[in-house]
Simulated assay, not measured.
Amino acid sequence: MKIAVIGGTGLIGSRVVRILSARGHEAVPHSRSTGLDLTSGEGLPEALTGADVVVNLTKPSTFDEAAPAFFRKTMGNLVIAAAAAGVGHAVILSIVGADQVPDLVYYRSKVLQEDILKAGPVPYSIVRATQFFEFVDTVLSWTSDEHAVRLPATLMQPVAADDVAQAVADVSVGVPLGGTRDIAGPEVFALDELGRITLAARGDHRTVVTDDGAGMYAAASGYALIAKNGAVIARTTYREWLAR
């Protein structure tokens, strides 16, 4: 099976390419560095020539008000080009709870991306993942200084990028879902507690201050970011990942 992986050199994409290649598929990574610009469409017809499946793992450079325009343009270009190329399955990676946090522009943008894919003519699958372990340090950096890290007690169920890539690869070679599959880590944490675990593992002695107005995830409440029944629950725990 030939699979075009757009965003195939990034955190998830490079892993997806490696997994699919190891399974004997022709997984071809595409990105700006390989000559594909999904925003303009340059290189897209060539990337999709002969592809059975296209996996879109691209994201904008910022999470701000520019995100909706990015997803509207890139997803629109991809759906049109995939249909023209006769691609039989389009897969995207989205976010668990994206439709539950309307105050976050990036989450609204991911819902927009999903809706464009659903409305198109190409059979599709959507994989929704919870926050990556690999992104936790970035989240902490948003609301930190040399003395403290301020974090809300928002509930999260983070997951390893390796496990997300496995889920994307599995869906990519299967029958189109015509719907969504969630993947999440095996444990639920309050974000402030996750911060304390992370700092302790790093030997960082700063204090974590619980502040329910701090940072992007202050906009999420309750179980919005927790996987629902039927989700794939990955095996890797956060402490196991930290220990590596």
Rank of each mutant, 00 (worst) to 15 (best):
V16C: 06
D137N: 13
S94H: 10
A90F: 05
L199S: 09
V168Q: 03
I183T: 04
G222S: 07
R196V: 14
V101K: 02
D192L: 03
P123R: 07
G24N: 09
A85M: 10
R32E: 06
H89N: 10
R206Q: 14
I12E: 00
T130P: 05
V209L: 15
S14Q: 12
G185H: 02
V164H: 02
F71L: 06
A82F: 08
L48N: 03
V149A: 11
S109V: 11
W142G: 11
F71D: 04
G178S: 07
A119E: 13
T74R: 09
R150H: 15
A153Y: 04
D162H: 00
V53E: 01
T9L: 12
A165T: 01
A190C: 08
F132N: 02
A219Y: 05
S221M: 04
K118L: 10
W142K: 12
A148K: 15
P68M: 13
N77K: 13
F189M: 09
P121E: 14
A51P: 01
A200Y: 04
G120Q: 09
T180K: 11
E46Y: 04
G174F: 11
S61C: 00
L48S: 04
D211F: 11
D64I: 11
I197F: 07
E187Q: 15
G213M: 10
L57V: 09
K2I: 07
E240L: 07
V173P: 02
G35K: 11
L191C: 08
G35W: 10
A85Q: 11
V54E: 01
S33I: 05
L93A: 05
L11T: 11
G88C: 06
T237C: 11
L112I: 13
V208I: 14
F135C: 03
A4G: 08
R244H: 11
T34F: 08
L242K: 06
I126W: 00
M156R: 02
A84C: 06
Y217D: 09
S94E: 10
I116V: 14
V91Q: 00
I126R: 02
Q100H: 12
H30R: 08
F189A: 06
Q100A: 14
F189E: 04
V175S: 13
A224S: 14
V111P: 03
Y106W: 08
R32H: 12
S40M: 11
A231I: 08
A161D: 01
W241Q: 01
E26Y: 01
D212N: 15
F71K: 03
T143G: 09
P68C: 13
A47F: 03
L177N: 07
